[in-house]
Design a protein around this nucleic acid. Structure first.
Length: 490
RNA sequence: CGGGGCGUAGCUUAGCCCGGUAGAGCGCCUGCUUCGGGAGCAGGAGGUCGGAGGUUCGAAUCCUCUCGCCCCGACCA
């Protein structure tokens, strides 16, 4: 090995780069059970930031948290025909408990629609009980064939929102609202631009009427489905007899929605912003936003500079320019026996957005020396008013990360592609998103997947569509029913 | 489950063809000197070579079986 301190580069082997980064930045580690992983503090810290931001948004939109059990009677899964077909193959099933064979096997939840709507049926009698707006933070298990850290593991953490409404339109509005919440989070917290839109019939959630999705582009130009929101119609309400008496006096089935995002987003964050030096975390999701590295030569200096670093930290954390509940998250790295350079590399690997160096020269000059993680730009900042400068710089980093990611996506987005040959050249070559016409036939979708591995990621929402809609289907040349986004996906 | 690769110290690995004292780098521990981009020197700890069987005077190395992991496919948040 030439230099085992350096990561494999993205250009050399994107997949190896990703795995090495996740392991070496200590985001996660392989567990003894094949396909499952341990989320280490660095990774879990990011997830906690994600949870906090999302949970606030869920509460703001009227949802309340609850918790439903891990085990679901096997018969529940079978009550909704499409649902069981979609999920049965990947379910873990408990057949024994307490040393005895169970009368009915229990499925370890792959998702909780069935148990939740079973319970909703007990709780809802009247239209006055609606809407019922519930979210749960939980782990789920899906027995996947091929796993990858954060992107696909046997067990993962997520949130699943489940709601019941009196009308289709209310449910549709909710489905759309939560897709918007996801988009807001992904763009403004993760700094990860997404395309929103509707999934095709073959890609929609098993049991849903319609599925909407947020699709992001990773640095290898592959798509990542980052979050989905489903309008379940009355499918589950009918299967679980979730009924209510309407104002009119009629008994009606409720209309459900479900929506979820998972720890997969941590993988998305890595693949959106990471570079060959390691992780790059958007400030808003960084467990540590600022690391202060004091620099000294002598023992006398060490005491002085460590003290100055602690004072700097105190000034930063006391600053309430972002509000009392959003204090700067600052760490001082005063470890002895490590040279400053070694510390720089370590914090860069871990993706801390901003580093402040504080040495004797800075003390003399009344400044601190800053280094941005994203651009690696360095500059002296006046010590006076440093907190406001740091807050502003972090905001700039947050915005620049989003702008860079968006520019990269646009640079790898291909529109006005009308020939299937050209389409294949792009997909098999550089990859990226290809906007093209589709006749709406699932057989065409299947054929393209078979031939190129590309799938329709979404039928994009209006704002993402091309100025001039494609008129013909990319494959058959027939009139196009939709403009769709094609890409290879994770 | 198909195809490919690999299991040697905490990590990365050399050695394996051609059997003969298990080696290195990183990391770790102790001490001294260092400290503005991965420090140096000295000393030290750490291995039943994935497991089981076989061949042999002798196996990390050869044979058989087995277990596990990674990558590529089919399936998917």
């Amino acid at each position: 090995m030439a230099d085992d301190k350096k990561l494999t580069t993205r250009a050399d082997d994107f997949s190896a780069w990703y795995n090495e980064l996740v392991l070496r930045a200590e985001l996660a580690d392989y567990s003894p059970v094949k396909g499952s992983m341990v989320i280490r503090p660095n990774g879990y810290g990011i997830w906690e930031r994600m949870q906090r931001a999302l949970d606030d948004k869920f509460k703001e939109t009227g949802h309340r948290n609850a918790y439903f059990p891990l085990f679901i009677p096997e018969s529940f899964l079978k009550k909704e025909a499409q649902h069981v077909e979609g999920f049965a193959p990947e379910c873990a099933v408990v057949t024994h408990g307490g040393g005895k064979k169970l009368e009915e096997p229990l499925v370890v939840r792959p998702t909780s629609e069935t148990i939740i709507y079973h319970m909703f049926a007990k709780w809802v009698q009247s239209y006055r009980d609606l809407p019922l707006l519930i979210n749960q933070w939980a782990n789920v298990v899906r027995w996947e064939m091929r796993t990858r850290l954060f992107l696909r593991t046997l067990e993962f953490l997520w949130q699943e929102g489940h709601t019941a409404h009196a009308t289709h339109d209310e449910a549709e509005e909710e489905t759309r609202r939560m897709l918007g919440v996801y988009r807001d989070f992904m763009e403004n917290w993760m700094a990860m631009p997404v395309i929103t839109g509707q999934k095709t019939e073959s890609e929609k959630f098993a049991g849903a009427l319609r599925t909407y999705s947020c699709e992001a582009m990773m640095q290898d130009n592959k798509a990542l489905q980052a979050g989905t929101s489903h309008n379940l119609g009355q499918n589950f309400a009918k299967a679980f007899e979730l009924k209510f008496q309407a104002e009119s006096g009629e008994i009606e089935h409720a209309w459900n929605t479900s929506w979820g995002v998972s720890t997969r987003m941590v993988g998305g964050l890595v693949m959106t912003h990471g570079d060959d030096n390691g992780l790059v975390t958007p400030p808003r999701l960084a467990p540590i936003e600022v690391v202060i590295v004091p620099i000294w030569k002598s023992d006398e200096e060490r005491g002085r500079l460590t003290e100055a670093a602690m004072a700097l930290k105190a000034e930063l954390t006391d600053y309430n320019g972002r509000g009392a509940h959003d204090r700067l998250r600052v760490h001082v790295d005063a470890r002895e026996g490590l040279k400053p350079g070694a510390k720089y590399y370590e914090w860069e690997l871990q993706g801390v957005p901003l580093r402040l160096e504080l040495g004797p020269k800075d003390l003399e000059k009344g400044s601190v020396f800053s280094a941005r993680r994203d651009t690696r730009a360095k500059a002296a900042i006046p010590r006076e008013g440093v907190a406001a400068s740091v807050v502003a710089l972090l905001e700039t980093i947050q915005n620049d990360l989003f702008a860079a990611a968006k520019a990269r996506r646009e640079a790898n987005t291909h529109r006005n592609v009308t020939s299937y040959d050209e389409f294949k050249k792009i997909i098999e070559g550089p990859g990226g998103f290809v906007y093209a016409g589709w006749n709406g036939d699932p057989a065409v979708e299947a054929r393209v997947k078979e031939e190129t591995k590309a799938t329709i990621r979404v039928i994009p929402d209006a704002e993402f569509r091309s100025a001039e809609a494609p008129t013909t289907c990319i494959v058959t040349g027939e009139p196009a029913k939709y403009e769709v986004v094609w890409a290879k996906a994770y």
